[in-house]
Protein backbone atom coordinates (compact mmCIF):
# COMPACT_ATOMS: atom_id res chain seq x y z
CA UNK A 1 0.00 0.00 0.00
CA UNK A 2 1.23 3.46 -0.93
CA UNK A 3 0.89 5.64 2.13
CA UNK A 4 0.32 9.37 1.62
CA UNK A 5 3.52 10.14 3.51
CA UNK A 6 3.35 13.92 3.20
CA UNK A 7 -0.27 14.01 4.34
CA UNK A 8 0.38 11.61 7.21
CA UNK A 9 3.37 13.65 8.32
CA UNK A 10 1.42 16.91 8.26
CA UNK A 11 -1.49 15.26 10.04
CA UNK A 12 0.85 14.01 12.78
CA UNK A 13 2.25 17.49 13.18
CA UNK A 14 -1.24 19.00 13.57
CA UNK A 15 -2.12 16.28 16.07
CA UNK A 16 1.02 17.12 18.04
CA UNK A 17 0.03 20.79 17.99
CA UNK A 18 -3.39 19.82 19.30
CA UNK A 19 -1.78 17.92 22.19
CA UNK A 20 0.34 21.02 22.83
CA UNK A 21 -2.64 23.39 22.95
CA UNK A 22 -4.57 20.90 25.11
CA UNK A 23 -1.71 20.52 27.62
CA UNK A 24 -1.09 24.28 27.71
CA UNK A 25 -4.75 25.07 28.35
CA UNK A 26 -5.20 22.39 31.02
CA UNK A 27 -2.02 23.55 32.68
CA UNK A 28 -3.19 27.16 32.57
CA UNK A 29 -6.48 26.17 34.21
CA UNK A 30 -4.67 24.30 37.00
CA UNK A 31 -2.20 27.12 37.62
CA UNK A 32 -4.91 29.81 37.47
CA UNK A 33 -6.96 27.99 40.08
CA UNK A 34 -3.94 27.40 42.36
CA UNK A 35 -3.12 31.09 42.03
CA UNK A 36 -6.66 31.89 43.17
CA UNK A 37 -6.28 29.70 46.24
CA UNK A 38 -2.87 31.22 47.02
CA UNK A 39 -4.03 34.70 45.98
CA UNK A 40 -0.91 34.82 43.82
CA UNK A 41 -1.40 37.90 41.63
CA UNK A 42 1.95 37.62 39.85
CA UNK A 43 1.16 34.13 38.55
CA UNK A 44 -2.32 35.29 37.55
CA UNK A 45 -0.82 38.05 35.42
CA UNK A 46 1.46 35.47 33.81
CA UNK A 47 -1.62 33.40 32.84
CA UNK A 48 -2.94 36.42 30.94
CA UNK A 49 0.33 36.79 29.06
CA UNK A 50 0.68 33.10 28.24
CA UNK A 51 -2.81 32.95 26.76
CA UNK A 52 -1.45 34.73 23.69
CA UNK A 53 0.65 31.63 22.98
CA UNK A 54 -2.44 29.41 23.22
CA UNK A 55 -4.40 31.71 20.90
CA UNK A 56 -1.58 31.73 18.37
CA UNK A 57 -1.36 27.95 18.50
CA UNK A 58 -5.06 27.65 17.67
CA UNK A 59 -4.63 30.01 14.72
CA UNK A 60 -1.68 27.95 13.50
CA UNK A 61 -3.74 24.75 13.68
CA UNK A 62 -6.57 26.40 11.72
CA UNK A 63 -4.21 27.74 9.06
CA UNK A 64 -2.45 24.41 8.63
CA UNK A 65 -5.71 22.48 8.36
CA UNK A 66 -7.09 24.90 5.75
CA UNK A 67 -3.89 24.52 3.75
CA UNK A 68 -4.06 20.73 4.02
CA UNK A 69 -7.67 20.70 2.80
CA UNK A 70 -6.75 22.98 -0.11
CA UNK A 71 -3.65 21.03 -1.10
CA UNK A 72 -4.50 17.45 -0.23
CA UNK A 73 -8.28 17.39 -0.71
CA UNK A 74 -8.91 14.79 1.98
CA UNK A 75 -12.17 12.83 2.14
CA UNK A 76 -14.01 10.56 4.58
CA UNK A 77 -12.09 9.88 7.82
CA UNK A 78 -9.14 12.08 6.82
CA UNK A 79 -11.44 15.06 6.30
CA UNK A 80 -13.38 14.38 9.50
CA UNK A 81 -10.11 14.10 11.41
CA UNK A 82 -9.00 17.53 10.25
CA UNK A 83 -12.39 19.13 10.97
CA UNK A 84 -12.49 17.53 14.40
CA UNK A 85 -8.94 18.72 15.18
CA UNK A 86 -10.03 22.29 14.38
CA UNK A 87 -13.11 22.01 16.58
CA UNK A 88 -11.31 20.31 19.46
CA UNK A 89 -8.55 22.92 19.30
CA UNK A 90 -11.21 25.64 19.56
CA UNK A 91 -12.61 23.86 22.64
CA UNK A 92 -9.19 23.74 24.27
CA UNK A 93 -8.47 27.36 23.37
CA UNK A 94 -11.72 28.22 25.16
CA UNK A 95 -10.52 26.35 28.26
CA UNK A 96 -7.43 28.57 28.08
CA UNK A 97 -9.77 31.59 28.04
CA UNK A 98 -11.52 30.32 31.17
CA UNK A 99 -8.11 30.09 32.85
CA UNK A 100 -7.60 33.75 31.92
CA UNK A 101 -11.04 34.61 33.30
CA UNK A 102 -10.23 32.88 36.60
CA UNK A 103 -6.90 34.76 36.73
CA UNK A 104 -8.77 38.04 36.23
CA UNK A 105 -11.17 37.20 39.08
CA UNK A 106 -8.13 36.45 41.28
CA UNK A 107 -6.68 39.87 40.42
CA UNK A 108 -10.04 41.50 41.18
CA UNK A 109 -10.26 39.76 44.57
CA UNK A 110 -6.70 40.91 45.27
CA UNK A 111 -5.27 40.28 48.73
CA UNK A 112 -8.59 40.37 50.61
CA UNK A 113 -8.91 37.17 52.68
CA UNK A 114 -11.19 34.58 51.05
CA UNK A 115 -14.57 34.64 52.77
CA UNK A 116 -16.00 31.41 51.35
CA UNK A 117 -14.76 27.83 51.81
CA UNK A 118 -13.10 26.66 48.57
CA UNK A 119 -13.55 22.90 49.08
CA UNK A 120 -16.30 22.55 46.44
CA UNK A 121 -14.44 24.70 43.95
CA UNK A 122 -11.29 22.63 44.50
CA UNK A 123 -13.23 19.42 43.88
CA UNK A 124 -14.77 20.92 40.74
CA UNK A 125 -11.35 21.98 39.47
CA UNK A 126 -9.82 18.57 40.19
CA UNK A 127 -12.68 16.77 38.43
CA UNK A 128 -12.64 19.16 35.45
CA UNK A 129 -8.89 18.80 34.97
CA UNK A 130 -9.24 15.01 35.29
CA UNK A 131 -11.99 15.02 32.64
CA UNK A 132 -9.95 17.18 30.28
CA UNK A 133 -6.77 15.14 30.70
CA UNK A 134 -8.65 11.88 30.21
CA UNK A 135 -10.54 13.10 27.15
CA UNK A 136 -7.33 14.20 25.47
CA UNK A 137 -5.94 10.69 26.00
CA UNK A 138 -9.18 9.08 24.75
CA UNK A 139 -9.15 11.43 21.75
CA UNK A 140 -5.58 10.50 20.89
CA UNK A 141 -6.32 6.79 21.31
CA UNK A 142 -9.67 7.15 19.45
CA UNK A 143 -11.22 5.35 22.44
CA UNK A 144 -14.97 6.04 22.26
CA UNK A 145 -15.77 3.82 25.25
CA UNK A 146 -13.63 5.95 27.58
CA UNK A 147 -14.90 9.12 25.91
CA UNK A 148 -18.48 8.20 26.71
CA UNK A 149 -17.58 7.50 30.37
CA UNK A 150 -15.74 10.82 30.62
CA UNK A 151 -18.70 12.72 29.16
CA UNK A 152 -20.93 11.15 31.81
CA UNK A 153 -18.73 12.66 34.55
CA UNK A 154 -20.02 16.05 33.47
CA UNK A 155 -23.23 15.36 35.42
CA UNK A 156 -21.17 15.24 38.63
CA UNK A 157 -19.52 18.61 37.85
CA UNK A 158 -22.90 20.10 36.93
CA UNK A 159 -24.43 18.91 40.23
CA UNK A 160 -21.52 20.31 42.18
CA UNK A 161 -21.86 23.58 40.27
CA UNK A 162 -25.56 23.84 41.18
CA UNK A 163 -24.89 23.08 44.85
CA UNK A 164 -21.95 25.51 45.05
CA UNK A 165 -23.87 28.33 43.40
CA UNK A 166 -26.67 27.86 45.94
CA UNK A 167 -24.16 28.07 48.80
CA UNK A 168 -22.49 31.14 47.29
CA UNK A 169 -25.82 32.95 46.87
CA UNK A 170 -26.77 32.12 50.43
CA UNK A 171 -23.41 33.38 51.70
CA UNK A 172 -23.90 36.59 49.74
CA UNK A 173 -27.38 37.09 51.19
CA UNK A 174 -26.14 36.44 54.73
CA UNK A 175 -23.14 38.76 54.41
CA UNK A 176 -23.93 41.61 52.00
CA UNK A 177 -20.51 43.12 52.67
CA UNK A 178 -18.94 40.06 50.98
CA UNK A 179 -21.06 40.32 47.87
CA UNK A 180 -18.23 41.56 45.65
CA UNK A 181 -15.92 38.61 46.39
CA UNK A 182 -18.84 36.16 46.34
CA UNK A 183 -19.69 37.39 42.83
CA UNK A 184 -16.10 36.81 41.69
CA UNK A 185 -16.13 33.28 43.13
CA UNK A 186 -19.49 32.62 41.47
CA UNK A 187 -17.91 33.45 38.15
CA UNK A 188 -14.98 31.13 38.92
CA UNK A 189 -17.48 28.37 39.66
CA UNK A 190 -19.15 29.01 36.30
CA UNK A 191 -15.81 28.96 34.43
CA UNK A 192 -14.92 25.59 35.91
CA UNK A 193 -18.30 24.16 34.96
CA UNK A 194 -17.99 25.47 31.40
CA UNK A 195 -14.47 24.02 31.08
CA UNK A 196 -15.86 20.58 31.92
CA UNK A 197 -18.48 21.03 29.17
CA UNK A 198 -15.67 21.32 26.65
CA UNK A 199 -14.48 17.83 27.64
CA UNK A 200 -17.94 16.59 26.63
CA UNK A 201 -17.70 18.51 23.35
CA UNK A 202 -14.41 16.81 22.56
CA UNK A 203 -15.95 13.42 23.38
CA UNK A 204 -18.71 14.20 20.84
CA UNK A 205 -16.13 15.23 18.25
CA UNK A 206 -14.40 11.90 18.77
CA UNK A 207 -17.65 10.03 18.15
CA UNK A 208 -18.15 12.00 14.94
CA UNK A 209 -14.61 11.17 13.87
CA UNK A 210 -14.96 7.46 14.51
CA UNK A 211 -18.61 6.88 13.57
CA UNK A 212 -19.24 9.59 11.00
CA UNK A 213 -22.48 10.58 12.79
CA UNK A 214 -23.40 13.25 15.28
CA UNK A 215 -24.02 12.16 18.86
CA UNK A 216 -25.36 14.05 21.85
CA UNK A 217 -23.47 12.48 24.76
CA UNK A 218 -24.78 14.48 27.65
CA UNK A 219 -28.07 16.34 27.61
Amino acid sequence: MVVRERFEQELNEVQEQFIEIANSSINALKIAFEALLNQDLETSLKILEDDLIINRLEEEINDRVILMIAKQQPVATDLRRLMVLVKASADMERVGDYAVNIAKETIRIGKDPLVFPTTNLQTMCTKTVEMLESIIKAFTDEDTVSAKEIAELDDYVDDLYGATITLLLRAGAENPSHISQITHLTFVCRYLERSADHATNIAEHLFYLVKGKHYELNN
Binding site: M1, V2, R4, F7, P74, V75, A76, T77, R80, K211
Partner: peptide
Protein backbone atom coordinates in the same frame (compact mmCIF):
# COMPACT_ATOMS: atom_id res chain seq x y z
CA UNK B 1 -18.97 6.64 -0.27
CA UNK B 2 -17.05 9.89 0.24
CA UNK B 3 -18.04 10.48 3.88
CA UNK B 4 -18.50 7.15 5.57
CA UNK B 5 -17.54 4.29 3.28
CA UNK B 6 -18.32 0.91 4.80
CA UNK B 7 -15.30 -0.94 3.46
CA UNK B 8 -11.76 -0.08 4.55
CA UNK B 9 -10.50 -0.69 1.00
CA UNK B 10 -12.86 1.99 -0.31
CA UNK B 11 -11.68 4.40 2.39
CA UNK B 12 -8.04 3.67 1.56
CA UNK B 13 -8.61 4.19 -2.17
CA UNK B 14 -10.59 7.41 -2.00
CA UNK B 15 -8.12 8.75 0.58
CA UNK B 16 -5.29 8.13 -1.88
CA UNK B 17 -3.63 5.39 0.15
CA UNK B 18 -3.36 3.05 -2.81
CA UNK B 19 -4.09 2.99 -6.53
Amino acid sequence: IFQTPADQRTEDYISGRFG
